[in-house]
Deep mutational scan, measured.
Amino acid sequence: EPLWIRPDAPSRCTWQLGRPASESPHHHTAPAKSPKILPDILKKIGDTPMVRINKIGKKFGLKCELLAKCEFFNAGGSVKDRISLRMIEDAERDGTLKPGDTIIEPTSGNTGIGLALAAAVRGYRCIIVMPEKMSSEKVDVLRALGAEIVRTPTNARFDSPESHVGVAWRLKNEIPNSHILDQYRNASNPLAHYDTTADEILQQCDGKLDMLVASVGTGGTITGIARKLKEKCPGCRIIGVDPEGSILAEPEELNQTEQTTYEVEGIGYDFIPTVLDRTVVDKWFKSNDEEAFTFARMLIAQEGLLCGGSAGSTVAVAVKAAQELQEGQRCVVILPDSVRNYMTKFLSDRWMLQKGFLKEEDLTEKKPWWWHLRVQELGLSAPLTVLPTITCGHTIEILREKGFDQAPVVDEAGVILGMVTLGNMLSSLLAGKVQPSDQVGKVIYKQFKQIRLTDTLGRLSHILEMDHFALVVHEQIQYHSTGKSSQRQMVFGVVTAIDLLNFVAAQERDQK
């Protein structure tokens, strides 16, 4: 057995438009009618409502009807409940999964919650491996369901041993009777949507819809739904939504950006999952974080739909894509998950301010006199920076000697690579993860907040409520011999709460 199987392995699926269902090699399930009293909570997966979006479509000038398939009504709160249950049931049916076995899954959280929910009911041990950027709410729900959680670096490539995929496979090879159901490759993922989600949409719309818009992560949702719609409703256009920084969209030119990270969760990847059939997507749109969270908040405030950030991405694209539809036509959007997962993220004004998705003037509360002053007023001194090749031991000596707790790590040209902190280095040394002679590049981390000289002290204040420091950066445009230009970030300084307090105190003292 291989040590790991690539999540982007070539698909062996034989589905073709027009091929009889009787030739399918898979076990198919028909939607079942729910009894009045459910035998367990797993029976509350599927049969989610279709809700008309009344205000947002009109606000953006849509002539067509805009409908939302509300997947956050599933038992675990997301569309991923469907595939989690289906993968477990299919693994039980073919004898792969037996009582007492362990389920391991690399996930952005929602599939993990679905699997942990099913594992709690069915009696399996469950280990979820997820990147650090995923919300604390997801972690809390997983723990409450009895799952064990392993976190991995957000910026690790999918084929790196440190990625959530790599760590999951390492655990599988170490733990007896453990299984990775593997949402990236498992046919049960798109089949769950082909058999149930798509049929529900067709039934709820009486077979009449002209466009379907869905955000894409593993691709199982859009693949399964689109294949069924292509068979039953061939005139329906399928629109895929991919965040900026991901590479799922086609044509490839759409993916060209210097951005590699994004805040919206559960969609987009740096590889093409095996289950994603991009041939059934008629057109791709890219979405960005700001519009995703703005539209998610709009869905909550104006439509009462308590959905997550990827739902915002989907609707932001839908109001663009559906401009081509006329009166009497219908566009369906998939709202994948609930706001429950993001209470401390985009639902929080403070978080939105820190990330730059909300401006101070958007909030009406009274601010102190210094709130709208610029960061450049602080008069920061030149920063202490270190090269990635310097040793951890030497870096600790320098920081202690100069009285700093942290320093930016830059390359020879001064471009920011990340940050090192005294606390992080000492804990890594004590844990045996690094040696004093190791290069400081081994303990770089990139989960820090950046701020510009033109940003306000109010925004800085919000950042420092949650973080010990902020890195002050400025952009530099560099022209190359080819005539092309590129933008790079340079370090201007490091600012802490002490710097802000000293500035405010000094100004008030001078005024007296």
Rank of each mutant, 00 (worst) to 15 (best):
D467M: 08
V491G: 13
P243I: 05
L276D: 01
T279I: 12
K402A: 06
T261C: 09
E365G: 14
A497N: 09
Q354M: 12
L353N: 03
E303D: 10
Q435W: 09
F404I: 12
F285Q: 04
M419E: 05
D467A: 15
T261G: 11
V241A: 03
C331H: 00
K512E: 14
N255I: 05
D270I: 01
L325G: 05
Q450D: 15
I398R: 07
I398H: 08
P336V: 02
S485R: 11
L464S: 04
G379W: 11
A431D: 15
Q354N: 10
V319G: 04
T260W: 13
V375S: 08
V375K: 06
E265Y: 01
L399Y: 14
V241F: 07
V472E: 14
R400A: 10
K355L: 15
T496N: 13
F285L: 15
R452F: 12
R400T: 03
A506H: 09
V495H: 07
H462T: 11
T385Y: 05
E291S: 13
I498C: 03
N255R: 06
E253I: 14
A318L: 00
L430T: 15
S485N: 09
S437E: 15
S287K: 08
R340K: 08
K283I: 06
L384M: 13
G240N: 02
L347H: 02
H480N: 12
T279C: 15
V434Y: 10
A322F: 04
D270N: 02
K320F: 10
A506S: 13
V415D: 14
P368Q: 07
R459D: 11
E475A: 06
V280L: 14
C331E: 00
V375T: 03
R509G: 12
Y342H: 04
L373T: 10
K320W: 02
A382Y: 04
E360S: 15
M466L: 14
G403A: 07
A470K: 06
V317S: 02
L378W: 03
E258K: 14
I300Y: 05
R340W: 03
V443H: 03
L299G: 04
V491Q: 09
I398M: 14
V494L: 15
Q354F: 13
Q329G: 14
K367T: 10
W369F: 08
S310A: 06
V339I: 03
L500V: 13
V473Q: 13
G304T: 03
Q450Y: 03
T279F: 10
S338H: 05
H372P: 11
R459I: 12
E252V: 13
T421Y: 06
T257Y: 12
K442H: 15
V375Q: 05
Y445C: 08
V491A: 14
K355P: 01
F448G: 10
E401K: 15
S485L: 11
G379P: 10
S310W: 00
R400K: 13
T294R: 10
A292C: 09
Q487S: 13
K402D: 11
M343I: 11
R340Y: 04
P336E: 05
G493T: 14
D362K: 14
E508I: 10
K366L: 15
A431L: 10
G309F: 00
D289W: 01
Q487H: 13
Q511E: 13
K366V: 14
E252K: 14
K345L: 01
P243T: 05
Q450R: 03
E508Q: 14
Q450N: 11
A382R: 11
F293V: 04
T364G: 11
Q376M: 11
D282E: 13
V472G: 12
E263F: 08
V409M: 15
Y262I: 01
K367Y: 10
G328F: 09
F293E: 00
L471G: 09
K367C: 11
I334T: 09
K402I: 08
A311G: 11
D405K: 06
Y269N: 01
L500Q: 08
H474P: 11
G483R: 14
E397H: 12
A506G: 15
S310E: 05
H468L: 15
G493E: 10
L500F: 14
G458K: 07
D337G: 04
G268A: 02
K484F: 13
S313I: 07
K366W: 09
Q439G: 09
Q354W: 13
V491M: 13
D362R: 12
V410Q: 15
K402V: 15
V275D: 01
L471A: 08
L306R: 01
L347F: 07
L500R: 04
R400I: 10
G493V: 11
G266E: 01
A296Q: 03
A497K: 11
D405Q: 07
P243F: 04
H474D: 11
I396H: 11
V339N: 07
E365M: 13
L417K: 01
C331T: 00
L471V: 14
V495M: 14
M490S: 13
K512R: 15
K345H: 03
T364S: 14
L373P: 11
L417Q: 14
I247T: 15
A322P: 01
S427W: 08
H394W: 10
N288E: 13
R350A: 14
E252T: 14
K446S: 15
V315K: 07
G432A: 14
S287W: 01
N424H: 13
H372W: 15
G308H: 01
G328H: 08
G312E: 00
T314W: 02
I238A: 01
F271M: 05
D455F: 05
D270S: 05
F448Q: 11
R400L: 13
Q447V: 09
S338E: 06
I247G: 08
K433N: 15
L373M: 07
V504P: 02
Y479L: 14
P336K: 02
M466E: 10
H480C: 13
L325W: 00
V494I: 11
E253D: 15
H462I: 13
E253P: 04
E263R: 03
C307S: 14
Q476A: 09
K320E: 11
T496Q: 13
Y269C: 00
E475N: 11
G432F: 09
T395R: 05
K442W: 12
I477N: 13
W369C: 07
D455R: 02
G423F: 13
T344W: 04
C331I: 09
S428A: 14
L353V: 15
Q450G: 13
E377T: 02
Q435I: 15
L460Y: 08
Q439T: 12
L276F: 07
K286F: 00
T456H: 11
E360C: 06
Q478L: 14
S486Q: 13
E265Q: 05
K320V: 05
L500H: 11
I498V: 12
T279S: 12
I239R: 00
M466I: 15
Q376Y: 04
Q329L: 09
I272M: 12
G393C: 15
A321G: 15
V440C: 15
L460N: 05
T294M: 01
L335M: 11
L299Y: 02
A407D: 03
Q507T: 13
E244R: 03
Q507E: 15
K286G: 00
K446R: 15
L276M: 11
G240P: 00
V339T: 11
K283T: 01
G304L: 03
E252M: 13
F469W: 13
E291P: 02
D282S: 15
V504S: 08
L347K: 04
L471P: 12
R297C: 00
L387W: 13
F357E: 04
T261Y: 13
S481M: 13
L299D: 04
Q447K: 15
A506E: 10
Q256S: 15
